[in-house]
Design a binder for these strands. Structure first.
Lengths: 207, 207
DNA sequence: TTTCTTATTGAACGATCGTTCAATTGTGAT
DNA sequence: ATCACAATTGAACGATCGTTCAATAAGAAA
């Protein structure tokens, strides 16, 4: 009679990938209102029950989505830096340019991040995803600063402390721009970070 | 027979103050789990219905609590700076010292702030409280930078841009320290900010 | 003491939440 | 073509949410 199937079966791994993507899309579009299993399953085009078939709880899905999105964003930036041939200083500039583009500087990301942070307070799983991705970001910053610091013309400075300062400034500017993009332009944020690194290389800080 | 009253009446203003305080205490203690009217009313020692008698909705109470807490914290810092006699540069240092003390740098505040940010996405009222208090913070930073810039030995720099850079660094370090206090010590954050201002006054940045 | 105002209570309501599970059905293996 | 497995469905459950509102009673005014 009716030979159009009511649903399509998928292998667990493929379905989980779909669910993760749907979760990210859902949080992008609806923010904290997109956090419910019904909202996510509607976005994924599947029934409510399927989420708990593939995940022990909603929190595990959120944690996976967190890790996927954060890793993707960082990887996008890293790829752009890797494609740039040049000195460590030029690579740092390439990093800033990518960071202050819509690859990172996008209000939808803060909208999602707030939900992740909110969930981190409730769920151990989400907090673990947070810690892992945060460490990856800081490691990347520190690596670039180390390459800078090993140049012959570079003054002595504390790599760890410099990485904290720079990622603090990056995070802070990202946060503030997302909270209110009218306060300053992305290029101004970029200029502030370039200036900070110039100051560092000129020995203006005692680190 | 029983002459101990079942409850004590309070004037609306006094009761609202109690509710605001209870909300802040509740969010401090329980984070996002302390957001419900039942949780808040239990903390305040009153019945569930009373909140909606004094506030049209829960969001209005949250917005009031946001504004109260943010204003109080900023005021505490301003008071300490005001008590400090000295040059604009010394006042800036007093500000940093207060900022990197538990007056501002306290994990419980981020826990509360995440709830506020989370609510900002849902409630226009909460977002207004956020915008207002954020502007007050930035205004204070810019004022101190202006006092610095008007010194005869100061180089020319853009006050607005400098305020964005400094408050970005302050916000970012606050956020990162609260997310994971083991990454760096408060004194290190203070040192980074002092170094940034020293660089600014030495003309290391082109702002 | 009596009256009147209104702050306060707490049960009730409808909505929504995450999760469960028996029934269904797509799909590859036989 | 048939079987067996398991991916998928969707109704149902109990918990919790914010809000409403009729009943109550505290406390000032008369």
């Amino acid at each position: 009679m009716n030979d159009t199937p009511k649903f399509r079966r998928q292998a667990p791994d493929a379905r989980k990938k779909d669910l993760i993507d749907a979760t990210i899309r859902c949080l992008e579009k609806k923010g904290s209102d997109g956090l419910s299993v019904r909202s996510i399953s509607a976005e994924a085009g599947i029934s409510v029950g399927l989420i708990n078939h593939h995940y022990p709880s909603k929190d595990d899905l959120i944690a996976d989505a967190y890790e996927k999105l954060a890793t993707d964003i960082l990887q996008n930036v890293i790829n752009i830096v890797a494609e740039t041939d040049g000195s460590p200083r030029e690579k740092m500039s390439a990093f800033f340019k990518a960071y202050f583009s819509s690859i990172v500087l996008d209000q939808k990301f803060l909208r999602i991040w707030i939900v992740f942070w909110y969930m981190s307070d409730k769920s151990e799983k989400v907090r673990l995803s947070h810690d892992k991705t945060n460490a990856g970001f800081r490691r990347q910053i520190e690596l670039m600063l180390r390459n800078l610091g090993e140049l012959p013309e570079a003054p002595d400075f504390n790599y760890r402390l410099a990485a904290i300062g720079l990622s603090g400034m990056l995070d802070g500017l990202w946060l503030e721009w997302c909270l209110n993009p009218e306060i300053f332009a992305p290029e101004e944020g970029l200029m502030l970070c370039e200036g900070w690194v110039d100051g560092l290389m000129a020995g203006a800080f005692k680190l």
